[in-house]
Every structure is written in C-alpha cells, then in structure tokens.
C-alpha cells in the first residue's frame, strides 16, 4: 500500500459524447493513479462520470461516446494507442471488470463453468481439461459451494450473490493486474454485500491485484479502499487516502455526501440532502461545477474553475476555500 510503484495511470482523460444537442463532457480531465495491489475508490452521484471512466479504460464506449484526450497507461503502455488485437489481449487477462448487475452480466444460454472458461481459453494456451480444473479451483476460492456440480449450472439457477461470485471468479481467473469493479454490490442486499466485499478484499490480498472500486456508497469505500477519488460532473473534486478523507473531508461536496448518510447515533427528523441536482452536462456552470449547490460558494466560484490544490499528506481538493491566495485576498 505504501510502495510508490504505480501500475496504472490515467492522465487528463477526456471522454465526450457527441450528441445532436451538443458535446457532453462525461469525463473531463480525470487523473487517477493506482499502485500495485492497492484498492482505489471512485465515488460520486449517478451521472458524474464514474462508469464512463471505467468504460473508457476498457474501451467499451458506445457510439456517440469517444475518448478525446488523455492517456491510460498500464505499466507504461498506453491502452488508447493500442489496436483491437492488443486491447483484446489485455481485456480479461491483465485488466478485468466486474459489472453492477450479476443478473444480466451472465449469458443465460451457457453454463457458468463454460463462461468462466472463456477467458482462460482465450488468453492462455491450455487444454479444456486444465481450464475446467482451474475454473473449479477458482469457484471454490470465491466460495461457491460444490464447485464441480455448479460448473454445469445455468445462471438463472443461481442467486444474485452466487452470480456475483461467478463474476468475480471470471474476473480473477487470469490473475489480472487490475480489476475494475463497477458498483459490484449495488444490486445485492447488505449481508451478501458484506460477504462479497470481504471476498474481494481477501482475493486482492492473496493475488496482489489492484482494484478500482466504483461506487456511490461511501460505506463500501470506507470498508474496502485504500485511497479515494470523489468525482462530480466529470471532474475529480477531492482525493485522499481513505482514512484522511473520512477524518477530514475538505470539499463542500464530499462534506455534503457524508452528511447525507443517516447515522445510528443521532435522532434526526430530516435527513440532510445536498440541495439541487447534478448539473446538466450540456449546460455546465461557468465557474466551479458544484458552485450552484454549494453552501460555501463565493463570488470567485461563479466565475473561475478551481484547480486541484494539493494540501499536506497527499490530500488534494478542487476548491477555492483551500487556495491561500484567494482566501487572503478576500472573496
């Protein structure tokens, strides 16, 4: 966790959708660094660009969407400069992905064993028998009971939790360097969620795979990540090691997010909410993107976009409140 060798770097990623109404900047200059074996959280509201960041990495973007700028480097190799063959060699082998809906992410007409074998057969030159043995091993590892029997079972015969275990098995089967989990527990109930997060943590420690955990659930981040990025309207608003962020949230947005979690120790009649809505990406405010919803908004916030200011111990925040010059010159 403390080592500094980053295996995965996103720099200045801009993903835009070219619609008939105009250009939608879904991801707007995002920088993310993942170190070996580290779990990085990417948090934000719906529509803030977290999933689009993941899609850009896997190059799964659909038609009007395109990466316009930036680099995505896995161990120094730029994924965006690769051709289709090279990308296919990386997908599922060195970078894999877990999807939100375990109900729909498995093909209903194939047995789960056959589907899990697919990645192995593509990326490793091994016989069917070896692949089957490996899959059964992996199924056992992710806690699927009676893996030999489950090997030839269809997805609809499994519960949501088991299906998500299958997805994890499929994602981990080639021992990838990076696993992107796009809201892996959103569709599951809380007890299963806890089990799945525990399982992912265990596997991550065992295999040394780095994880990007995309979620809107701060609880999930607190439990499973080492470092957090808070995203809003296509931009990173704040980034910090997880403990630092929870101890000391700086950005008014992060602050609002944390305040809107109900707490068991407190009796409240109304739950705190951040007023307003995520801005229309076609019609963004001129200044800071969070400005229209911000309690602490100043005059300058409506006019200029703040940069990501670095504070002590790696805590970075995109807010004028933490820019000394601005604060000293008076609003």
């Amino acid at each position: 966790m403390i080592n500094n060798d980053s295996i995965f770097e996103i720099r200045g990623l801009k993903t835009q959708f070219f619609t008939s109404k105009g250009v939608v900047p879904a991801v707007d200059g995002v920088d993310i660094t993942v170190r070996k074996g580290e779990a990085v959280g990417l948090v934000g509201e719906s529509g803030c660009g977290k999933s689009m960041t993941a899609m850009s990495v896997m190059q799964l973007l659909k038609k009007p969407g395109r990466v316009v700028e930036g680099t995505i480097k896995l161990n120094g190799e730029d994924l965006l400069k690769m051709n289709k063959r090279e990308i296919n060699d990386i997908r599922g082998n060195r970078i894999s992905m877990i999807f939100q809906e375990p109900m729909t992410a498995l093909n209903p007409v194939y047995t789960i064993g056959k589907q899990a074998m697919e990645a192995l057969m593509i990326h490793q030159k091994i016989s069917k028998e070896e692949a089957k043995a490996k899959v059964i091993d992996m199924f056992a590892k992710v806690g699927i009971p009676e893996p030999e029997k489950r090997f030839s079972v269809y997805p609809h015969q499994l519960s949501g939790g088991l299906r998500q275990r299958v997805m994890i098995a499929m994602a981990m089967i080639c021992n990838p360097e990076l696993m992107i989990a796009d809201e892996p527990t959103t569709a599951l109930d809380v007890t299963i969620e806890a089990q799945i997060l525990y399982l992912m943590n265990q596997l991550q420690k065992e295999v040394g795979t780095a994880v990007i955990m995309i979620t809107h659930n701060l609880g999930v981040v607190a439990e499973s990540c080492d470092y957090v990025y808070v995203m809003y309207a296509g931009k990173i608003m704040e980034e910090a090691p997880v403990k630092e962020l929870f101890k000391n949230p700086l950005h008014p947005y992060t602050f609002g997010l944390m305040n809107s979690i109900p707490k068991m120790t407190e009796v409240k009649t109304h739950l705190y909410t951040i007023k307003g809505m995520v801005p229309n990406l076609l019609n963004l405010p001129q200044g800071c993107r969070f400005c229209p919803r911000c309690d602490k908004a100043m005059k300058i916030c409506t006019m200029y976009q703040p940069d990501l200011y670095e504070l002590e111990d790696g805590h970075k925040v995109r807010c004028f409140l933490y820019n000394k010059e601005v604060m000293e010159s008076g609003k």
Binding site: N88, R91, E101, A105, A119
Partner: peptide, 12 residues
C-alpha cells in the same frame, strides 16, 4: 445486454 459487454471485457 450486459453479458455482451462482459464478454467484450474479457477479451472475446
């Protein structure tokens, strides 16, 4: 469908 996306994401 997501499983088509999932298949793409494992390099099919």
């Amino acid at each position: 469908k997501e499983y088509v996306e999932a298949a793409t994401s494992i390099g099919v």
